[in-house]
């Protein structure tokens, strides 16, 4: 994962640079990795129950839903945009898939049962539609993504509220139940799904033309437009990708938790943004990638899990998470500056 900037890696072998400038320009990749090693070592020493195979499995499972959502968010942040509606869209998609599934008789929701595959397709269509609204607001009307997705956060929460009306649904299609809470050969399906999606995201960003365009639009939007790229189409696409990834995360999350209800995913907004940014993807766009996001996911996962193992005050835990995020933001901005100096 250390060479997570592999979108540019093939270009690196002939640079006439010393080691110090190289390290400086790679700071955004190195710092998160060192943080991960440091945290892992710290918790391994502090608690005997941390560094066990079982616990590694726990961490992987715990970061899976965040990981699925963070795939799409990585595209958005690489374009120097933001998506604040990811958690709400995850929530509404999870609720929608339950809404279209036959619930037990004691669940008091006026739902519309459908065959499993139809329910899944309808839920996917819903999140894609919400992503499309984000995309149109951003590109056609010109609403900054921060504000547009803030509105979408409310809209998606509103749709969720109308669908469940304060109740809790439990049943989702069998396929979703299996992927969300089943396992194969001891490996939870949700971990496999997250791994496949992260890998897919990485392949798209690194090896496809669209992926290159994402980096170019994020690196210098004006230049991308002057090169004749369809910048609006690319920005719109990443908003839809983000919404669909969130939707998939939401459906599997509902199966994983065993219930679909309002506000179930609220913590995932911060966690997903934190994973992408802690991993070292630049908030200014154009730098970073899925590799960074994976490191970021593990930093957060190890931190959350490790703090439980050392039996710390659970209120202090929130503060510590905030401080780690702040430190990562400082490194993120600082790394950008170092890089600009190196390139100047």
């Amino acid at each position: 994962m250390a060479s997570s900037d592999s979108a540019t890696a093939p270009a690196d072998h002939k640079r006439p640079r010393g080691l110090a400038p190289f390290l400086r320009s790679q700071m955004r990749n190195i710092a998160p990795f060192l943080t991960l090693i440091f945290l892992s070592a710290f918790f391994a020493i502090a608690s005997p129950s941390f560094a066990t195979i079982d616990n590694v499995g726990n961490i992987l499972t715990q970061v899976s839903v965040t990981g699925i959502i963070a795939v799409g968010l990585t595209f958005v942040i690489l374009c120097a945009e933001i998506d604040l509606s990811i958690a709400s869209i995850a929530n509404v998609t999870g609720i929608a898939v339950a809404y279209f599934t036959l619930q037990e008789s004691y669940v008091n929701i006026a739902n519309v049962p459908m065959p499993g595959i139809v329910a899944i397709l309808l839920a996917l269509a819903l999140c894609a539609l919400l992503g499309l609204v984000n995309a149109l607001g951003l590109t056609m009307i010109g609403i900054p993504s921060f504000i547009m997705t803030l509105a979408m956060m409310q809209i998606a929460a509103g749709v969720s509220a109308l669908l469940v009306r304060g109740q809790i649904a439990y049943k989702v299609p069998d396929l979703i139940t299996t992927l969300g809470s089943g396992s194969i050969g001891g490996i939870p399906w949700i971990v496999i799904v997250a791994a496949v999606m992260l890998l897919g995201g990485h392949l798209v960003l690194t090896y496809t033309r669209f992926g290159r365009y994402v980096y170019m639009v994020g690196g210098n939007r004006e230049a991308a437009e002057f090169a004749g790229l369809n910048v609006k189409l690319i920005l719109g696409s990443v908003m839809v990708i983000s919404a669909v990834c969130s939707g998939i995360g939401g459906m599997l999350g509902v199966a994983h938790f065993g219930s679909a209800q309002q506000n179930e995913f609220d913590t995932y907004l911060l966690d997903s943004i934190a994973a992408v940014v802690v991993g070292g993807t630049s908030l200014f766009g154009g730098r970073g990638g899925i590799g960074n996001t994976i490191v970021g996911l593990f930093v957060l996962g190890v931190l959350n899990n490790g703090l439980d193992h050392v039996n710390i005050d659970s209120f202090l835990k929130i503060l510590i998470r905030g401080l780690i995020l702040l430190a990562a933001l400082i490194i993120n901005v600082y790394a950008q500056r170092l890089r600009e100096q190196a390139a100047d």
């Binding site: 540019t8 170019m216 690196g219 230049a223």
Partner: peptide, 25 residues
């Protein structure tokens, strides 16, 4: 018109990517 953080070849190839690659770079 240029991407200062990207290598020279990506700056040159950007306008022709569409013609040399359908999906994969």
């Amino acid at each position: 018109m240029l991407f200062h953080q990207e290598p020279v070849y990506k700056n040159i190839s950007i306008s022709i990517l569409e013609r040399i690659s359908a999906l994969l770079l």
